[in-house]
Amino acid sequence: MQHAQIGSTCQYHRANTRKIGYGSIGEDFQAAITNRGDYTGNDTVAARRVYMQYTAFLENPSNYARFRERLHIILRLTHNHIVKYHKVAVCPTLVGANFEFLMDYYPGGSLKTRIETMKNSKTLLDPSRAVQYSIHLADGLSFLHQNNLTHGDLKPENVLIECAGDGRPEKLLISDVDGLVTLLRDAISSLSLWHGRSSARYQSPEILGAFTIAAREDVWSAIPGAKTDVWSLGSIMLDLLRCITGDHQEVLRNPVTGKVMGQERRLGSMEFQAAVVVHGCIPVVNAPPPVPPQLAECVRCCLQVHVNERLSAEELLRKLDYCAL
């Protein structure tokens, strides 16, 4: 594969000693713009280097063509709550191609880190801020879906925080919208990547495994779609509800039998997956004061077992806007 650059004409230097995170497909490093070209953003950016074991997939011409088609869409996206991608660089090496994404850098870190910090410090989240966070994510997700894109791997690790400053309020942005995880899952023709790399707690039942509830065998599909993203967003919003009350106990309930799991101890990842796939359990949404009842209802509308009963991202955004009034 030849050298290729898709997107901005800028040049950058990646600082290997400044790793700022890692994800399902690669590692993120802080980088600096060395030649701006047509780039008009900040001098400090983030560069994601795709793990070498996945680049062989992209070296296949057919797979790369699919990937490139999505990238051309992603690079054109500009939205207040979606991390901006600027370019993709493809550089051949002796052992295979090296793929790197260049995107905006947000020193505020991820929502996962923010939630863990609040849990460890026993800090409570203001209800109005939980509503605003949810609006930010629903707004970004709705925009993706309006552009016929699904995320497929939405979880707190893939939500970044832009800190307040210079008159700007704090805001959340959805990251990892490149879709490479989805393409890899399709290529592998199994859900092993999904199960191993992605947190089961944010994946919908139809992704975790096909199973039957209440004798309805026609509702499941293992193909990620817009309603899959909505379940994931609902799971993130449930985390925010727990941050409001400080009660981070994760409880699952079977909607048919009423059986409850997770009250005695926290379920492990595989236990959680089995509870959802085998027993048909769904997260319990508790909403004691000061949780806004409308926000809790929005979460319940996202965490519907049957795909067609979930809200769309656009419908969710309208309900959340009403919560903010």
Rank of each mutant, 00 (worst) to 15 (best):
G225I: 02
V260H: 11
Q263F: 07
L267W: 10
H279W: 15
F272G: 08
R242V: 00
P288G: 02
L238W: 04
L238G: 01
P292V: 00
G234F: 07
S269Q: 15
T228I: 03
E264W: 14
D229L: 06
E271I: 09
G225L: 01
H279C: 14
M270A: 15
P289Y: 10
Q273G: 11
R253L: 13
V230W: 00
G246P: 09
H248R: 09
W231H: 03
P224S: 02
D247G: 09
P290G: 05
G268W: 06
A274Y: 15
C281M: 14
P288T: 01
A274E: 15
V284F: 09
Q294C: 07
V284C: 11
P255C: 06
D247R: 10
P288W: 03
V291C: 02
E264P: 10
V285I: 13
F272A: 04
V251C: 09
P293Q: 11
P224I: 02
C281Q: 11
T257V: 03
K227N: 02
V230Y: 01
M270G: 14
D239R: 01
P290L: 01
V284W: 03
L267P: 12
E271P: 11
M237L: 07
P292E: 00
V251A: 06
H248S: 11
H279E: 15
K259F: 07
P224W: 00
L238V: 08
S232F: 06
E264D: 15
P288Q: 04
V284I: 13
A274Q: 15
V276C: 12
Q249S: 12
C281K: 07
P283L: 08
E250T: 14
E271C: 06
T245R: 03
G262M: 09
H248C: 05
E250H: 14
R253D: 04
L238R: 07
R242M: 07
P283W: 06
R253G: 03
G258R: 00
H279F: 15
Q273W: 13
M237K: 02
T257W: 06
C281W: 11
M270K: 15
D229R: 02
L238N: 01
K259T: 06
V230D: 07
L267G: 04
D229Q: 08
Q263H: 14
P288Y: 01
S232L: 02
G262V: 05
G234D: 10
F272Q: 13
G246D: 09
M237H: 00
V251Y: 07
P289S: 01
D247E: 13
V276Y: 10
I236E: 03
L241G: 07
Q249A: 12
N254S: 09
N286I: 06
G262Q: 07
G262F: 03
V276W: 11
D247C: 01
I244M: 04
Q263E: 13
A226R: 00
G280A: 13
P255E: 08
P293S: 13
G234Q: 07
I244N: 05
V276D: 10
P288L: 06
E264C: 05
G234Y: 00
V276H: 12
R266F: 08
A287Y: 01
V285N: 08
Q263T: 10
M270T: 15
W231Q: 07
L241D: 00
R265E: 14
A275I: 14
M261T: 12
